[in-house]
Design a protein around this nucleic acid. Sequence first.
DNA 1: TCTGGGGTCCTAGGACCC
DNA 2: TCTGGGGTCCTAGGACCC
Length: 418
Amino acid sequence: MKEIFALVDCNNFYASCERVFSPKLEGRPVVVLSNNDGCVVARSNEAKALGIGMGVPAFEVEDVMRKNGVEVFSSNYALYADMSSRVMETLLTLAPDIEIYSIDEAFLNLAGFNCSLTDYGRKIRRIVKQWTGMPVTVGIGRTKTLAKIANRVAKKSARVNGVLDLTDYSCLDTVLTGTPVEKVWTVGIKTALKLKSAGIKTALALRDADISWVRQKFGVVGIRTVYELRGISCYLLEQNPPVKKSITVSRMFGRPVESIEELKEAIASYASRAGEKLREHSLAAGVMTVYVTTSRFIKNRYFNSHTVEFAVATSDTIELIRNACRCIDRLYRKGCAFKKCGIILNGLVSENQIQKGLFDNIYRLKSQRLMQAVDAINIRLNSPLQWAAEGLGQSWKVRFKRRSNRYTTCWDELPEVA
DNA sequence: TCTGGGGTCCTAGGACCC
DNA sequence: TCTGGGGTCCTAGGACCC
């Protein structure tokens, strides 16, 4: 049986999450900012119409936002993650095989559905909106790449009412002609430039490009994209989330950090979070990299990193913090105004496949029990336990000046009905 | 003054082995 | 004088995704 993919994509996801619990935002321009209220990461259609671009620094659009009364929010990850799982659970009732592709997108396998796929797409839209409040768009195609293109067109064209089915679609060539090559999935900024300089400007031109030339210039990724545009599926539905290969925790600071003590507090708190993530996935890390950096936007940027290998893979927060702080001792440079630091864990292994060490002198069982106890307590507490190394004041912490309430995950912040 | 965070895959090139 | 060839593994960096 031939594959049929539907891509269900939440419209302006973060902005729509804010609207669900604040209906007065309906019809108004809404913008959500990244960590530290730095960049624009989501915009309602009204905000897009004002010319506010994706990813632009907030300070660059401050004037236009103020003049037009744009509603501005800091990122509220607790809310967005919870809304995402509500949407995904709803989709699971509408199609048995789904791949959760990102926080706001899922691929559905619609092969074998004996009905009008357009009608089914409309049903998906209606039910997701009714059950979760989230507006979504549905694009349908014979490959993931074509489903992506269908979704993009459905978002832009009011005529199709949020659903476009490109399987057996008579105007497929017209759609591909109207799709700039840089909008094709897997074609990024560099590849698009190379393609355009070779005269390939649309998805249609890429579909009809010479395959050996594509292989030579763009490798197997390029080949797959061309085949996908031709309706030959190269990317299958992946229902089981792949095993993690790395875990990163990094944040910009709320203000420049110059003292080694504060740098250590920050890295300790990221190491603590990294340990939690390891244990959430029942993993242990064999390798840890710590990096520090000053601003990307100054001339004499200082960036440095240091990697340590653990003799025995670990998920023990105390061990992570101790080693991360040692890394900071090596990386710190006096007089630098640090803007960010981070920790990357690699060499991940399942916690029941840890290779024991002959000369290991750490009492692992004890530390394991301690971590279990800490995790269990933190699940129940609103403000989690902290390690002393994380510091008390934490004035370096990221800013979230305009965060909305965590309506769905925090008892103190439930929506109120007047 | 102010510029996010967390991932994956692929490839080329070096190290190393027989 | 003359210095092979083929294979694997690992890593860093590039490119891309949301």
